[in-house]
């Protein structure tokens, strides 16, 4: 060992000394540092705890049910799946301090329009209106109870079960047509709907009653019923409850 050190060139000894000094310092510093600086498991633990301690702002619907009667009303209507805070805003603070901090009570048309304005990107079953045409001066909640909103115009008997179709039709050019214009409904359909069915049109000529060139219905778009998409039945390309006008 000693002879090895003696044989080692002087320059190398000096360099090694510096290296040992630097590396030693690094190792020493690393060893002296507390775990809070170096232990990543500890970092993960503290982060998770900090994240969990973050204050909650939205209380969740169950919290509202304890005090508010309207909650039950809402549960029976079309808005049953809506959380209270969807419209009334974050209300955790209100739930902790009910008398002083009141949540939002949106009453403006614009608020309802945020979801219910017609938009071609929205799913077709979703109730939508054109706010410019739909009673433009009235506030929505004058006619619709926000906790139990109901469509007011479609014939009640059909929409009770076919609500989605009724809503879709409401937006379509066929809005003025009664269901019975196209469907003949036997009385028993209401009692045993699956056994006794309403009729559905089966021929192109049925649509042709309004849409063929010979028809007297002026407002309906016209096609040449003999050549227009001759292979197909009309409803293979056009959904009758929401016929796209091409």
């Amino acid at each position: 060992m000693k002879s090895f050190l003696q044989k080692m060139p002087d320059a190398l000894k000096r360099v090694l000394a510096v290296f040992v000094l630097v590396a030693g310092t690094a190792v020493l510093v690393r060893a002296v540092l507390p775990a809070s600086l170096t232990d990543s498991r500890l970092h993960i633990k503290t982060t998770v705890e900090r994240e969990m301690a973050h204050p909650v702002r939205y209380a969740g619907s169950e919290a509202c049910a304890d005090c508010h009667e309207e909650y039950k009303v809402k549960q029976g209507g079309y808005h049953k799946n809506l959380s209270c805070e969807t419209c009334h805003g974050a209300a955790k603070e209100h739930s902790e301090n009910p008398s002083d901090l009141k949540p939002k009570l949106p009453r403006m048309r614009e608020f309802c329009a945020g979801c219910h304005t017609y938009n071609p990107s929205r799913p077709s079953g979703f109730p939508q209106v054109n706010p410019a045409a739909h009673n433009p001066r009235k506030v929505c909640i004058e006619c619709h109870n926000p906790h139990d909103p109901k469509p007011t115009r479609t014939p009640r008997e059909c929409s009770a079960c076919h609500a989605e179709i009724a809503r879709t039709k409401e937006l379509s050019p066929h809005v003025q047509l009664e269901c019975t214009t196209c469907h003949t409904v036997p009385q028993d359909h209401k009692l045993i709907p699956r056994s006794v069915r309403a009729t559905i049109p089966s021929e192109r000529s049925f649509c042709g009653k309004c849409h063929s060139k010979e028809s007297g219905r002026k407002e309906a778009p016209k096609v040449d019923i003999l050549t227009h998409g001759e292979k197909y039945l009309c409803w293979q390309c056009h959904y009758p409850h929401m016929p796209e006008v091409q």
Binding site: P9, D10, A11, L12, R14, V15, A17, V18
Partner: peptide, 18 residues
């Protein structure tokens, strides 16, 4: 120079090798 003083041929030769 880390206070080294050895400039003998042998030391210089070692430097080159390094």
């Amino acid at each position: 120079a880390l206070y080294s003083t050895d400039i003998s041929d042998k030391a210089v030769e070692f430097d080159k090798k390094m």
